[in-house]
């Protein structure tokens, strides 16, 4: 947690969530209304996943899950899949992101890339499984090659700006705790 600077304290948790709610709305709405075209290798990015994973790494998993739920509901409204499949896949992926807090590489520069790659893989596998159970049969091999791996690459590229932006916002909007005599 807080690998790139102590931007969060117990006193700023509430502020963090309040800051995150409009941001996550914006991210989810952008994903449904603005991003239609494939960005890279035939896939579109899952901005909500990148955003919430970065949030978990910078703050804590509870906040990430709350924001993930809010953004996930916005996506679910526009999704053709059965309600809940995005939320479940996102929760599983954020579970992977939470492991980033308790691992031996705590604070390492590559941690965020490792976590987003793992989270994308888990999100994809859970999505394919759930969609299959709901009647949208998808071949796992094709899903892995055509969707999950290109998505992973795209998310790796997006992680740096998203993480950097959230870190910058945290430092700008949330003052560091000071000790008063």
């Amino acid at each position: 947690m807080y690998s790139d600077g102590d931007v969060s304290t117990n006193k700023t948790v509430a502020i963090g969530v309040y800051l995150g709610i409009p941001l996550v709305f914006l991210v989810a709405l952008s994903q449904t209304a603005l991003i239609h075209d494939a960005w890279l290798l035939g896939v579109r990015p899952n901005l909500l996943l990148v955003f919430t994973v970065a949030w978990v790494l910078l703050r804590d998993v509870r906040q990430g899950i709350i924001l993930g739920m809010i953004g996930g509901i916005v996506l679910e409204v526009n999704s053709a899949a059965t309600f809940g499949s995005i939320l479940l896949a996102l929760s599983a992926a954020l579970g992977v992101a939470a492991l980033g807090e308790i691992n031996a590489f705590q604070g390492a520069w590559f941690l965020k890339y490792l976590v987003i790659a793992g989270a994308t893989l888990v999100y994809g596998l859970v999505s394919v499984t759930l969609l299959g159970l709901m009647g949208h049969w998808l071949p796992l091999g094709a899903a892995l090659v055509r969707i999950i791996l290109p998505e992973m690459l795209l998310h790796l590229l997006l992680m740096m700006p998203v993480y950097g932006l959230l870190l910058w916002l945290g430092r700008r909007l949330e003052p560091r705790a000071v000790e008063l005599d």
């Binding site: 449904t32 579109r44 899949a81």
Partner: peptide, 14 residues
């Protein structure tokens, strides 16, 4: 068209 499915797996729009 007012919205697209947000994922990469299903091809739907609203």
């Amino acid at each position: 068209i007012i919205g697209h499915d947000p994922g990469n797996y299903l091809q739907y729009f609203t």
